[in-house]
Design a protein around this nucleic acid. Sequence first.
DNA 1: CTCATATCGGTATATAAATATCGATAACAG
DNA 2: CTGTTATCGATATTTATATACCGATATGAG
Lengths: 220, 220
Amino acid sequence: MSVSSVSVPLYNRLTRYLNYLKQLTADEPVNISATAIATALALNDVVVRKDIASVSDGGKSKIGYVRAELIADLEHFLGHDNQSDAALVGVGNLGKALLSYDNFENYGLKIVAAFDRNPDLIGQSVNGKAVVDSAKIANLCRRLNIHIGIITVPNAFAQEVCDALVKGGVRAVWNFAPTNLKVPENVAVKNEDMAASLAILTAQLADSLTKYGVNEEEDY
Amino acid sequence: MSVSSVSVPLYNRLTRYLNYLKQLTADEPVNISATAIATALALNDVVVRKDIASVSDGGKSKIGYVRAELIADLEHFLGHDNQSDAALVGVGNLGKALLSYDNFENYGLKIVAAFDRNPDLIGQSVNGKAVVDSAKIANLCRRLNIHIGIITVPNAFAQEVCDALVKGGVRAVWNFAPTNLKVPENVAVKNEDMAASLAILTAQLADSLTKYGVNEEEDY
DNA sequence: CTCATATCGGTATATAAATATCGATAACAG
DNA sequence: CTGTTATCGATATTTATATACCGATATGAG
């Protein structure tokens, strides 16, 4: 791993805290304790307190944290308040799904360019974003000063697409293809490994089935 | 975590080994060493050997592992050879993308049912799979003996969908909604936390930009 | 047939993460 | 104004993970 690796579970938990806090309605108390968050999310309270300590400095005894401040601190730490432009390559089903998911903007990511090499797609637009010929990746990324690339092309083309993005000045790649991308030292890669997730899930399933059995007595 | 948790990084690495091994062409040697895999994937060779030891028992000194056997063992461990049926709920963009991604079948997952509550979608079919009214989730899952559920609905509906799936006998949930699902002890949940991934990526990006600067001198 | 070398597999150490323990503080009740 | 309780934050312990080390084994060269 070239760029400094940050703890994945930590980010997962921080995101969960943020989701939980945001979902609380306005009539809830202004303050919230680490213990409350911990029990709500089925976590250890010390973990929560330690995690929060790394992003915020509020925290008063007996009271807890000010909810609004905590949300702001989490959002800041997670980069949600600092939007960056991104380019997506590969306007297949997954690509379209990501292009259509405007919610990413709440997480600090704005997809401003879409590329594909299929002539039938070039010129069309998905969710208001025009699809441009993949040949122009490097050029356009550089012109638009884009530093984040999202790869949703088939495996076989992932590396060449990645190279084009890097050539265009991209410094962080979100890779949905199950490939091992080779990048220069100053480029970060985050693999979205669906296959691994799936394997974990099915392993847990198998485990659960052997442990608890298949047929639950349910009044159904 | 109710169901026994398995090490996420381990699964990630195993998936990477498998991808790498599969991508090797037929004219490569029959055997491969842990060291070779390690260097190819930029990992420590001991990690690779240890990981492999937990899924396979081949391994001869001086030779390495038999490639075909290793692939088979990895696939077996990752459950790719043991297909399970799954139901997907929420035929939006992401849902459609997953439904259209036939490649999951290579990973041991076959989506056999799709649900949505939108009347315009019900009755239509996506990639050969008919969309059924969400009201029938529990019933149909039980009839088809489905044990895996995939949730791609908006946040607000995730919990009720999850409850319906569990009522239908689902024992493993792949959750794409950024919510904290409450499930019985015998049900496994794998959250696909895109927001967390994004946060990690942008953090790495920020890190890289401060460390290496924005403007690389490139002959472009 | 013997020696050098590549590689495996087990044991040992180092690092990082999760969990437990404890004192300090601040609100509230009496 | 004093005692009780909830909560934070710091330190310590346990656990898990990653890395390093070393002997055993099998191949191929001389």
